[in-house]
Design a protein around this nucleic acid. Structure first.
Length: 359
DNA sequence: TAGACGTGGGC
DNA sequence: TGCCCAAGTCT
């Protein structure tokens, strides 16, 4: 069946023609016409957008990207930022290791590369938070080098183009190889974005719009009627349910008792409420002795690999209490629940909308 | 190397 | 409602 597929290099020009008319507008993207006129993107903005887009939708990223680039317009600005400010700005976007690595990477590029991103795949791959996908994306999009990006979109497009039924992630190397064969030497940066746009808008996970796809003719899955069932994926393990206790306490002046979570592990580096471990039946562990008032409602939240149910307790911080370890008191005028990861913001919201607690 | 690591939207 | 999915990386 392979002999029915046209010369791979012609795929590139077909897709680029489609992209010229259908490229989505994004704050970090140079339009195809501007790009053809010689305008190059700012590698800092390409890097920032690609890190934010890891496992995250374009819609969710847009506002964060605008805020980050407005507040820290250059990589030197970001490298000089305070860690808590960056973590607070990232709050709500998820996968917080990305924010910690964003700062690490900014500081390495500033100190070791004079503030200029390297342009090769191998050099980019060595930087914190930059893996095979992001190294290829920055190298191709920001520097127009012919690297092959392989994200979820490209995996899906390739599995369908070649009607690959082997399940992901095992089939990843084969799909990368097939994607590499199709990568053209002309306009590789626009091509990388074009394949991803194709996957995001036409070759979608469910109900792919094969009828209007620029690659409908050579696509083997469309010929065989298997597009909608590809790519196959190995089944995921079921999520267990864990339980925990969190303690929301305020001083008589209104300051909130929070803790800075350790860098390693879940919600690493973020602010949160003091609390127990999360497990099957965790022991209560209030930050101080008090008459803790348990809220009638619980927080329910689902992470990537488990469900969580949190019991909320509230009390006043006793006079003379001084925070130990990673705990800190945050003045009520400085406290912003938007600085918290979503699960912690949910606990705050539940607390603040429950009446009769004295807060 | 397989599991850890967030969140919100769509169906 | 619950599951799938989104421009993955790290260990």
């Amino acid at each position: 069946m392979r002999d029915e597929i046209p010369d791979p290099q012609t795929f590139g020009s077909v897709l680029l023609d489609w992209y010229d008319d259908h490229a989505r507008k994004m704050p970090w993207r140079i339009s195809p016409s501007d790009r053809k006129a010689g305008v190059m993107p700012d590698p800092y903005r390409v890097w920032m957008s690609e890190v934010m887009l890891q496992q995250t939708t374009v819609a969710a990223v847009k506002d964060y990207f605008q805020r980050f680039t407005l507040r820290w317009p250059t990589i030197a600005d970001l490298a000089a930022a305070e860690d808590p400010d960056v973590m607070a700005e990232w709050a709500g976007l998820g996968y917080y290791a990305r924010a910690r690595n964003l700062l690490k990477c900014a500081r390495v590029v500033t100190s070791e590369y004079g503030g200029q991103f390297p342009d090769t795949y191998d050099a980019l791959l060595k930087l914190p938070g930059i893996g095979p996908y992001t190294a290829a994306a920055i190298s191709s999009i920001a520097f127009d080098r012919p690297e092959t990006v392989l994200d979820g979109n490209v995996e899906r497009v390739m599995a369908r183009m070649y009607d690959i039924h082997d399940p992901l992630p095992g089939s990843k190397p084969a799909l990368k190889s097939l994607a590499g064969v199709l990568t053209p030497s002309v306009r590789p940066g626009d091509y990388a974005q074009a394949v991803m746009d194709l996957g995001a808008t036409i070759c979608t996970p469910k109900s792919p719009a094969c009828g209007i796809c620029p690659w409908r003719s050579p696509c083997l899955a469309r010929q065989n009627g298997t597009a909608a069932e590809l790519p196959k994926k190995t089944p995921k393990a079921p999520k267990p349910t864990r339980h925990g206790h969190v303690y929301l306490a305020q001083t008589i002046e209104g300051a909130w008792l929070l803790e800075r979570r350790p860098d390693k592990g879940l919600l690493g580096g973020m602010l949160g409420w003091p609390g127990s471990d999360w497990g099957d039946a965790p022991a209560p562990s209030p930050p101080f002795e008090a008459d803790w008032n348990c809220l009638g409602e619980e927080v329910r939240h689902t992470f990537t690999h488990f469900h969580l149910i949190l019991k909320i307790y509230v009390a006043f911080v006793p006079e003379g209490f001084s925070p130990q370890n990673q705990m800190l008191l945050v003045d009520k005028h400085q406290f912003d629940p938007g600085d918290l990861p979503t699960v912690m913001a949910k606990a705050f919201k539940l607390c603040s909308t429950t009446k009769g607690l004295g807060f």
